[in-house]
Design a binder for these strands. Structure first.
Lengths: 119, 119
DNA sequence: ATAACTACTTTATCAGACGTAGTACTTCTG
DNA sequence: CAGAAGTACTACGTCTGATAAAGTAGTTAT
């Protein structure tokens, strides 16, 4: 059975291909502020982007796995006594460096892409 | 045998994941100026990006195939009598609309990503 | 009670980027 | 004049990150 994938941009105004390189940056940026967990980060991103971009659940959770493997974040269990247990993440010093590197890269991307965009 | 992939950014200052969403835009942007072919576009991109980003050959040629299938560009053979035959591409009206749409999307991406980037 | 919300996990699939390698023709250089 | 470098692609296979679909599990609102 063939899975039908959505067309670019169907789920918002910004397609996921153009944000692909920035999902890590967004997550790390929020973890720079404070430790957090999936559901909260997902809501924050949606809010900060005013629904122009919504990170899919699976994208977000697989990003956590990837970032943790890379040593950029560390997960730990929350101590809430009710509700399903949350996995909180904190950013590591390596994650912080990576974030800063990504921010510098963004400046270059802006410069470069701008040259191909008609004003 | 395991293929060893390069780390992000090894081939320049900008990694390919962050440019992934802009390869089409770059190609279409150049075809808006005039019809062109692979090798030339590749050189132009490299030059315009001052070597900060280099589009790989395979990426470029597979983009041509994809864009042609989508009806955004049309290929035709050049008439040069010496050297290997070139495939020139021209942008279609649909390609032009797509390009403009991508330019609008870029404005949104800039707005949104900026919110996650530390100044 | 049952729908909606919170908070995830698993599995499988896909598109686009990329490494490797090869074809083919031309021009430069020692 | 031979070999290297440049021009102009094509084919094949693999990888990453995003996604759909579906399920688990507990809580809160109606």
């Amino acid at each position: 059975m063939r899975t039908v994938y959505r067309e670019k941009g169907d789920d918002g105004l910004i397609g996921s291909d153009v944000m692909r390189g920035y999902n890590d940056l967004m997550i790390l940026s929020l973890l720079m502020e404070q430790d957090s967990y999936g559901y909260e980060i997902s809501k924050q991103i949606r809010q900060i982007c005013s629904d122009k971009y919504v990170m899919k659940e699976t994208t977000l959770y697989s990003a956590f796995t990837r970032l943790e493997k890379a040593g950029y974040i560390e997960g730990y269990f929350g101590t809430e006594t009710n509700g399903k247990q949350r996995t909180y993440y904190r950013i590591t010093p390596e994650g912080s460096s990576y974030y800063q590197e990504k921010c510098r890269e963004w400046q270059l991307v802006k410069e470069v892409v701008e040259k191909f965009v008609k004003e």
